[in-house]
Computed example of a mutant assay.
Amino acid sequence: MTKLKLGIPKGSLEEATIALFKQAGWTISPRSRNYYPDVDDPELACALVRAQEMAPYVANGTLDLGLTGLDWIMETQAEVSQVCTLTYSKASNQRSRWVLLVREDSPIRTVADLKGCKVATELVGFTRRYLAERGVDASVEFSWGATEAKVVEGLVDAAVEITETGSTIRAHGLRIVEDMLYTETRLIANPRALDDPDKRAKIDQIALMLQAALAARHKVALKLNIRAALIDEIVALLPSLHAPTVSHLYDPEWLAVETIVDVEAVRTLIPRLRAAGAEGILEYELRKMI
């Protein structure tokens, strides 16, 4: 088959994306001053592309597959197929969002108050459409960076900027007027690539393994020994996908129990298991879960 051309987002998502592919089974090795990393799969060819430019390259067939944010798909309005969502770029569980922000002392309280105002953002196309749909006539200009500072310094009346918790915005004396767009990383494909049976099979393989790697990050395996007489009490404590795995040890009075649990549950679950009589409790990380 012709190699599938895969776009890896260059910049803030690059390291996290390469780590995710490594966990999923592919080793991608960037080369100094080179935009074409090596990959240990003869059916793949990789290119480093800015997330902001990924969707157009996938849409025009330069790339068959790529990873970028929903925000940049909506900004460019590129005709791509969204294969799946991959939430892996942030340490917390909060989604990134684009917000309309102003100075704390600004009279602007709603989007409608932007009439005749100047707004700075990197997400120009989306912002213009967002305001037009609400009948707001405002000037929207592209910002090359330091967008929040332009609001603080009074260079613009408002800004549309990406945030996760909003703490930096508040620290600068700014106020969020409205959430405009929640965004997540999407695996996107060229529609014509999906029509090719060989490429479609490869895309499905990549999507499955990336999602399996991400699912495993939120779970751990627990293994423990328990006296057979206490098994009902232990099983009642254990969450699992279907039911815990229980097997006999050489000593007929003891059982081995294994299950999969949420990472966040372990800190409270292990003390409860220990108090219920469990011994030899082991926790280990998973690499993939399907």
Results as ranks from 00 to 15, higher is better:
M289L: 15
G154P: 05
G277C: 13
I231P: 03
I234W: 08
A193S: 14
I203T: 06
G61D: 04
K10Y: 06
D105V: 10
R274V: 12
A45Q: 03
M180N: 00
S12L: 14
Q94A: 14
L13E: 01
I226C: 11
I226V: 15
T163P: 08
T87M: 10
N93M: 15
R170E: 14
V102W: 05
V39E: 08
P239S: 11
L101P: 02
V119R: 03
Y35N: 14
E148Q: 13
T168V: 15
N60E: 11
A221M: 15
P42N: 08
L6Q: 05
T147Q: 07
T268G: 15
K199I: 00
V58Q: 04
N34T: 10
E283M: 10
R175P: 02
W72F: 08
T268Y: 06
D204K: 03
P244W: 08
M54I: 00
L101W: 03
V263P: 00
G11N: 10
I108N: 00
S92G: 13
L101N: 01
R227M: 08
I206F: 09
S92A: 13
I290G: 08
R103L: 05
M74V: 04
Q94M: 15
G166C: 03
L174Q: 07
S96M: 15
S106R: 08
E233H: 12
V140L: 06
T87W: 07
A78H: 01
I206T: 09
D204Y: 05
V80H: 01
I231E: 14
V111L: 07
R227G: 05
L123I: 05
L282C: 09
A138E: 02
A276S: 01
L181F: 05
E14T: 10
K5L: 09
T85Q: 11
Y36H: 12
V39F: 09
L44E: 12
I108S: 01
E285M: 09
V261Y: 03
D113E: 11
L6H: 03
E104G: 11
D137M: 11
E79P: 01
T127Q: 00
D251S: 04
I203G: 01
T2K: 09
Y130D: 03
V83Y: 00
E79H: 06
M289R: 04
R109L: 12
L100F: 01
E161Q: 04
A265P: 00
A276G: 00
R129A: 09
K115S: 09
A228P: 01
T259A: 14
A275D: 11
A120S: 07
D196Y: 03
L63M: 07
D38F: 14
K3F: 02
P30R: 11
A132C: 03
K10P: 02
G135K: 05
T165G: 12
V152G: 07
M54R: 04
L6G: 02
S29Y: 10
C117A: 14
R200C: 02
R97Q: 10
L222S: 10
A91M: 13
T147I: 10
T127K: 00
M74I: 06
P271N: 13
A256H: 06
M74T: 00
E161R: 05
L44I: 10
S32F: 13
A243M: 12
S143M: 10
T27Q: 03
V99R: 02
R31N: 06
V140E: 05
T62W: 07
